[in-house]
Design a protein around this nucleic acid. Sequence first.
DNA 1: CTCACATGAGACAGCGGTGTCTCAAGTTGG
DNA 2: CCAACTTGAGACACCGCTGTCTCATGTGAG
Lengths: 186, 186
Amino acid sequence: MSTRDTVLAAAQRLLTTDPTASMAQIATAAGVGRATVHRHFASREDLLHEIGVRSLERWAESQRAAGLAEVVAAGDADRIRACLEVLIDAFVVDADEIGIALTDPTVLNAPDLRERADALFTQEVTLYAAAQDAGVLRADVPARWLGHSLYGLLIAVRDALVSGDIARRDAEALVRSTFLEGGAAR
Amino acid sequence: MSTRDTVLAAAQRLLTTDPTASMAQIATAAGVGRATVHRHFASREDLLHEIGVRSLERWAESQRAAGLAEVVAAGDADRIRACLEVLIDAFVVDADEIGIALTDPTVLNAPDLRERADALFTQEVTLYAAAQDAGVLRADVPARWLGHSLYGLLIAVRDALVSGDIARRDAEALVRSTFLEGGAAR
DNA sequence: CTCACATGAGACAGCGGTGTCTCAAGTTGG
DNA sequence: CCAACTTGAGACACCGCTGTCTCATGTGAG
């Protein structure tokens, strides 16, 4: 792994727990000198931006891997269900890695990242809308609300894992099941 | 409203949108001088701590107003359902007000606040557990997970409101319905 | 071996935020 | 009217972080 990637990974990890971590702390966490960090990233903002870009690429890759576009075009209920499942699992796996990108002001306020994130969210909402049409997801709530609620569950699963309230191996199933069936008894 | 309360309210509002807002920005938002802020709060940490205390009091008050303790003791399914509803509505109303207290590192890392928040969460989980026993909430997931997932939905509703994806008047119903029934079609 | 290159360590100036202080200008209550 | 109190504005020193620079060290390729 290149020094650049080492720094990037350490920053992603550290900033998730402490968004205010300084460049010096990031350098220490990466096991490199502070000057070296600046050699690879002109400024703190640059570093955050790069993390944002990578996180969005990861997100886009998840959508691609789940075959989102084709599934939406097909509109088949079973395929939609499977696609949702794949997508949720990918999210849970990436939750802590792309966490900062979803919450840090520096990342959120970068216009280009904001735009790409909106595009990805909107892209994803097409799946929810298709799911509503196919009778997979309930149609009495806005499709975009379904997107937000899944995002909220990702925050929840991260917290639950940190506080040790759920087992890592159960995480995907809990999110899937809660997103679809909710918490009420049957 | 006392100057102190004015500052507190402005800080709560401002910090929700920008957690890194400086004391000067807070002072401006409150319409007072920077020195005045420091007259009422010895340090930035003090101010944050006070906000945390108030948010936790609000939370505790919501539990009291919903009669949580008595409902848990009674264990009656209908009363549990009603209690949940009242609690969720109160959360949605307070979501943006106590938002910072749930995310800001300064608040989260204060040991005394951390302890009180844990106590309140645990208290609330007794309701979820009682709801599971009474057949109101599903019993095949950890009670604490239900707590986390509701918390996640609060984050979601705040985001959805900010981005204009849902109407304010629909917020409570969406959270209630999504928490209980999930997103799958029936 | 030698050169090119990346690195660690440290020094440095600049910047913005913090917390303290003072002083002049209201405001309130007796 | 007057005294006590509160405020706004500004000045100030302090601190930590940022970004730049230099220099010595180490390492790999030729």
